[in-house]
Every structure is written in structure tokens, then in C-alpha cells.
Amino acid sequence: MEMIIGGAFQGKSTYAEKYYPEIRWSLGSSVSEDELYRAEGILGFHEFIRREMRAGKDVKGLAGKLIEKNPDVILVSDEVGYGVVPVDSFDRAYREAVGRICTELASFSTRVTRVVCGIGTVIKHA
């Protein structure tokens, strides 16, 4: 598993598509759970987490399931935890869930790249 993370609009997807030109990408904003477990790469993975939570689903086991069923997937995800604690309780829960899930996935990943202004810095290479 590999991850490409960073703030919104930092050129993560462009970076990912350039770095992995052969990968077929699915979108976190539209992919189904089944497709998620078969996908080669996911752009906007955080969108999937948000959709699941909006649908009232428990996302606690999501990282574990993804590691078990799709250990070679490449995930591109926004970092969403660098702001003031949101007033809205859903936003708070979502922000924390993205953090916890991505922390678990990063611990499993062989490579984690952080993209700022389109420039990737590898922060983990196991």
C-alpha cells in the first residue's frame, strides 16, 4: 500500500497520475465499498470516508478491511485535521475519523508521500 497525502488543491492527483501512469484510478466521491476493495488506486479517499459516515455507517473497521482486502492499493487523500476544532459534531467526527483511518493505513503503507504546492516529499519509505 502507498499513500499520497496533503492539503486540498496541492496537486496530489496530478502528482499521483504522473508518478503512477499505469494505474486505473477510482474516485472516493463515487466508488462503492466493493469497488474500493478491488481498486488499483483511489483519488480523494477522504470523500469515501465522508460518504460512509453521512450514510450513518461505522467506519471504525475500514482501515483494517482495506488492509486485508486490498493491501496493494494506492490511496490519495486530503489531510483535514489542521484547522480549529469544528463547531458541528459531524464535522468533528469526520475530521477525527480521517485522521485515525489514515494513521492506521500509513502505519501499514510502505511509502507515504506528502504533497505541498505540487512537490512531493517522501515522509515514510519502509
Binding site: 497525502i5 494513521t103 493505513l105 500509513a106 507515504v112 506528502r114 517522501v122 515522509i123
Partner: peptide
């Protein structure tokens, strides 16, 4: 700490452990 990965912005030169 970025998703569990330590990224050092300042550290003692003698102590190199992980992170960018």
C-alpha cells in the same frame, strides 16, 4: 506527527531516528 509518521522540524544532531 503526520498520520503517525514523525517529521522533525528541529532535532539534536546526535539523535537521528526516522522522519524527514
Amino acid at each position: 506527527v503526520v498520520y503517525g509518521i514523525p517529521v522533525y522540524h528541529k532535532k539534536k544532531m546526535t539523535d537521528h531516528k526516522g522522519g524527514a
